[in-house]
Write a protein that binds this DNA or RNA. Structure first.
Lengths: 333, 333
DNA sequence: GTGAAAGCGCTAACAA
DNA sequence: TTGTTAGCGCTTTCAC
C-alpha cells in the first residue's frame, strides 16, 4: 500500500525539464520561464509531489522546525492551563509559516538530556523556552547551543537577550490602585515566590501602589503561588493585621486559598475584605464570590514569542516585549 | 561562534577506523571488535559527536518523529485542559524513546492542510490523533496516508483500527449506580451531544443503570456538554419532573450549569437533589458544593496512545484499549 | 571484523 | 533561462 512518494527527479522527467528548474519553481526563485513553471506545476499536481523534508534539510542545513521547550515542575493545574494557552498562541503563528513545531516537556533529567540532544544535533532551527522556574538549566543549554532562542518570562539573575514577558509589576500596581480607588486603605498582599521575576514584580507593583498613595506596605505574607500557601498567608495576615480591608494575592490559586480562610473567619467578601488575584485561570470565575483578577495575555505571549523567533530566523532584529495585563473586575472587590 | 558540529567522518578519522565501523558502533550492530568500539566511543566523547538527524533520516527513510494532531474547535477551557493532560502523558512515553514529538493543532483549514503536508512528505513516522469531533477530516487524511495511526477516542460512524478510549459507558453506569445505592429513585440525566461516541456512551450507561434497577429512564434532557446547555437542561428537567432527586450530567461543565439552576430554584444539593458530573476538570473541586464526578484517565490515554504507536512502529501488534474511569466522591451526592 | 563506495532526495554553484 | 553536478552526513550493502 504505502507506495514511495514521487521524487523531484520524477517531476522533472514528467515536466520535461531539469531537476534544477523544478527546484527553482518549488522555491520560487527567479530565472524560470513561464512555460517551464507551468509545466512543472502541472507535473507536481499530477504526481502529488511533496518535497522530502529530510533531503531538503540535509542540503540546506536548515531544519524547518522550531522547538518549544517547557520546563515545568509546577503544580499541574496552573502549569497545564498556562502551557495549553501558550501552545495555542504559538501554534497560531506557526501555522502561517512552513515551520514545524516540536514540543519538549523537560521536567525530568531525561527530558533535559533529550532537549540537549535536539540542540546539539541541530534538529531545530530555533528554540522557544518557557522556563517557569528560575535558573533553569534549559536556559543555559539553549544559550550554549548558539541557536536563536526566545524566552517566555525572565529570571531574576539575568535578562535573556530575547524575551516576551507579561507586565507583572504594572498589573499588580493596577490591581492595588483599583482597591485604593474603591476606598480600601489597609491593603495586604500575599506574595509569590520572591526569587522569581514574576513574584518579585508583583510584590513591587503592590508596594509602588500603596506607597504612592501614602498607605502602609507592611501588611505582607509570603507565599509560593500555591493555594495552600495562600490560605496560610491569609491566616497570618488576619492574625497580625486584623484591620485589613483588602488583599492582593499574587496568584489566583493563593486568592482562592485566602477566600476559604476569610470565609472560615466570618469575613464577608467583598464587604469586609476585598480580594484580588492574578492570572485568571478557569477557577477564578467559579469561586464564591467570583474573583477579581489580573489577566495575563498568555496566548499573546505564545504568539509574540513565535513571531520573535521567526524574525530571528529571518535574520531580522526583533525587540523584546513586555505585554500589558488587564484587570478583570468581578464580585470579590 | 556557531561552529559546525563534528561529522561521523571526523569521528572515524580520530578513532582511526572507517565510517562504516563508527556507524556500526553508533547503531550498536554486531561485528565490531571491542577495540574499535572503545576507540570510537572515545572519539565520540571527545568530539561531542551527535548524529545529524536529517542525514540519518534521508538514509534510513525513517523520520524519528511522530505527530500528535489535535483537532479542536471545542470550548477553549475544557479542550485546553484535556489536551494539556494528554500531552503530558504522551510526553512521558516519548521521553523513553528516541522519537521526537511534533505537535499540530489543526483547528483551522490551514492547520489541516499543514497536517496533510506532514503526512505526505513523510515528515513523521506515525500519528496520534485526538479528534474531539466526529467525522473529523483529519481522521480520513491520516488513514489515506497509510501512516500508522492511533486514535484517542472513537467516532460513532466507524471504529478506528487502533484506538484508546475511556470507558464512558461504564463510568456513567457506575455514577448512576452510586446514586441508586444512596437511595435516589427519580434520577435524571443531562446528556452530551448524542452524535458523539462519548455522549452516546454516557447516556447508555445511565439508562443501563436505571433500567436494571427497575427505575424510570424517562427523565432526560439533551445538552451539548457546555455549561449553558447544562443550565438549560436543568430548567427543563425541573419543569417536567419536579420530583427528581438526582441528576447525572454527562460533563462537569453541564453539572456546573445545573448546580446554578438548582440553587436559583431553592433546591439544596445534595439534600434535595444529588448531582454527579463527568470529567473532573479543575472546576469540579471548586464548585459549591464540590462536585462528585467521573474521572477520566486522560493522561493515561496519552501514555497508552503513545505506547501503542511505538509498538506499531516496531512492527508489533498492539491492542486497542478502553481505559477504566473512576468515581470521585465529593459533597454533591 | 572492517573498509570502500553507492546511494537517500534535495539544493546551489557553475557552465552553458 | 536552463542543465549538470557536486555535495549535505549518514546507512548499508558488498568485498575483502
Amino acid at each position: 500500500m504505502t507506495t514511495r512518494p514521487p521524487t523531484l527527479e520524477e517531476v522533472a522527467q514528467r515536466a520535461g525539464v531539469s531537476t534544477g528548474t523544478v527546484s527553482r519553481v518549488i522555491n520560487n526563485a527567479r530565472h524560470v520561464s513561464d512555460k517551464s513553471r507551468r509545466a512543472v506545476e502541472k507535473a507536481i499536481a499530477e504526481l502529488g509531489y511533496v518535497p522530502n523534508t529530510a533531503a531538503r534539510s540535509l542540503a540546506t542545513q536548515r531544519r524547518g522546525a522550531v522547538v518549544l521547550a517547557i520546563s515545568s515542575d509546577d503544580p499541574a493545574l496552573f502549569a497545564n492551563l498556562f502551557f495549553a494557552e501558550v501552545i495555542t498562541g504559538v501554534n497560531a503563528v506557526i501555522e502561517e509559516t512552513d515551520l514545524q513545531l516540536m514540543l519538549v516537556l523537560a521536567a525530568s533529567e531525561r527530558g533535559r538530556s533529550r532537549f540537549g540532544k535536539i540542540l546539539q544535533s541541530r534538529s531545530a532551527d530555533g528554540v522557544m523556552l518557557l522556563a517557569l522556574k528560575e535558573n533553569d538549566p534549559l536556559s543555559t543549554m539553549a544559550e550554549d547551543s548558539g541557536l536563536p532562542t526566545v524566552h517566555g518570562g525572565r529570571s531574576l539573575d539575568r535578562t535573556p537577550q530575547w524575551y516576551v514577558d507579561a507586565d507583572n509589576r504594572g498589573g499588580a500596581r493596577t490591581a492595588v490602585e483599583h482597591l485604593i480607588a474603591a476606598g480600601r486603605r489597609n491593603i495586604a498582599t500575599i506574595t509569590g515566590e520572591l526569587d522569581t521575576h514574576a513574584g518579585q514584580g508583583r510584590y513591587m507593583g503592590y508596594r509602588e501602589a500603596v506607597v504612592l498613595a501614602g498607605l502602609s506596605d507592611q501588611r505582607v505574607a509570603h507565599g509560593d503561588f500555591s493555594e495552600a500557601s495562600g490560605a496560610a498567608g491569609m491566616k497570618l495576615l488576619l492574625d497580625d493585621h486584623p484591620d485589613l480591608d483588602a488583599v492582593f494575592a499574587a496568584s489566583d490559586a493563593m486568592a482562592i486559598g485566602a477566600l476559604d480562610v476569610l470565609r472560615e473567619n466570618g469575613k464577608r467578601v467583598p464587604e469586609d475584605v476585598a480580594v484580588v488575584g492574578f492570572n485568571d485561570v478557569v477557577t477564578a470565575r467559579n469561586t464564591q464570590p467570583a474573583l477579581t483578577t489580573v489577566r495575563q495575555p498568555i496566548e499573546a505571549m505564545g504568539r509574540e514569542m513565535t513571531r520573535m523567533l521567526v524574525r530571528l530566523l529571518n535574520g531580522e532584529q526583533p525587540t523584546s516585549l513586555i505585554l500589558p495585563t488587564e484587570l478583570v473586575l468581578r464580585a470579590s472587590t
